[in-house]
């Protein structure tokens, strides 16, 4: 089912958690809401669920205005970070809960419920554990039970609030791949909140980057990673270097020396140059470049990371080179970003 968030504002007492947020979620999509804590991502998710009500604006499920509907009527599946399983109920009772509490007219009979539960247990790979209590399960198993419980009511939208946040790294990775598979198989419209960019980029069809109650950028993982549209997104997603430069008739200067980059149409004055550590070439011949002083090298996965200081004020820049490269042994190098973006000067963050 399509979900449309239209001009939604949310205030808690005086504090504005969301400013005028609009978002279209297409049917069957897997969407990640990504942002640092306090960015409003969980609030947005809870608004869609109906666990909070917007101060202004509306939320549509399909063509229906869902804003006035209660949580119960919205028919959504919600998975909480800390599972929120009913600890006095067995796995079976937890999963069956949403079906058993239905009014008699719409409640499936006991055999049907049992069948559905075993089907879901198969789906979340927990067959045989239906008699266990939540306290007897591991974190990963609990979260899968929570997911099965949410799926049992055949929700129109599946909402997950930091679903893997409380799990250790290995289990998290496993569950990630498994959730993707599950989504491909069941095709639920799914929205999940995360502060883990790797998780968002790997899992989602589209990523919504949020900051301070606003949506910064919406796009596919490629778009978000390759063409961030704001300094915030550039700094938040992946690793990046930010160097303060100045622009003079389309030429970029660092400490009054041209660095060989042209930004047509950029306004003259101060600006910030963003580029990623692996999008840098080392300049060996003559020609304009950014000269740097090597202050350290570290092994970084499959590459070697060189830390340099550039410019008059010694701004830190990190670059990745191949492991067997001998660059940097002389203590000096010249570099030029291959892919980069220029943003009008802002105070550097993070």
């Amino acid at each position: 089912m399509d979900v449309r968030v239209v001009n939604v504002k949310k205030e808690f007492q005086r504090f504005a958690a969301l400013h005028d947020v609009s978002l279209d979620i297409r049917s069957g999509e897997l969407i990640a809401l990504l942002g640092p804590s306090g960015s409003g991502k969980t609030t947005l998710l809870r608004l869609i669920a109906g666990l909070e009500s917007p101060t202004q604006g509306s939320i549509y499920f399909g063509d229906e205005d869902a804003s006035t509907k209660s949580v119960q009527e919205r028919h959504i599946g919600f998975v909480f970070q800390h599972y929120a399983l009913f600890r006095h109920m067995s796995v079976l009772e937890n999963i069956a809960f949403g079906l058993r509490i239905r009014p008699r007219a719409t409640r499936p009979n006991a055999a049907e419920i049992q069948r559905r539960v075993s089907e879901l247990l198969d789906l979340v790979q927990l067959s045989g554990l239906q008699g266990r209590y939540p306290s007897q399960l591991s974190g990963g198993q609990r979260q899968r039970v929570a997911l099965a419980r949410a799926l049992a009511i055949e929700p129109s939208v599946l909402l997950l609030d930091e679903p893997f946040g409380a799990l250790d790294a290995k289990v998290r990775k496993e569950l990630r791949g498994w959730l993707r598979e599950l989504h491909d198989r069941t095709g639920h419209t799914t929205v999940f909140v995360t502060h883990d960019q790797e998780e968002a980029l790997e899992l989602a069809d589209r990523v919504v980057v949020m900051s301070q109650g606003r949506i910064e950028q919406v796009g596919t993982p490629d778009e978000i990673y390759d063409t961030p549209n704001s300094p915030f997104v550039f700094g938040f997603i992946g690793e990046s270097n930010a160097v303060a430069v100045s622009v003079n008739s389309g030429q970029l200067y660092l400490a009054d020396r041209p660095i060989g980059l042209h930004a047509d149409g950029a306004a003259d004055g101060d600006a910030t140059l963003f580029f990623r550590p692996h999008d840098v070439e080392i300049v060996t011949g003559p020609g304009p470049s950014i000269p740097g002083v090597v202050v350290g090298t570290r092994r970084h996965g499959g590459t070697r990371r060189i830390e340099t200081e550039v410019g008059a004020s010694g701004q830190r820049v990190e670059i990745d080179v191949s492991v067997d490269a001998t660059i940097g042994s002389t203590g000096r190098l010249a570099l030029r970003p291959r892919r980069w973006r220029l943003f009008p000067s802002v105070p550097l963050r993070g």
Partner: peptide, 15 residues
Amino acid sequence: LSRESEEAAATLGAN
């Protein structure tokens, strides 16, 4: 008592 389990019950349709 976690508020979340009450919210979970509500999302599952419990009055």
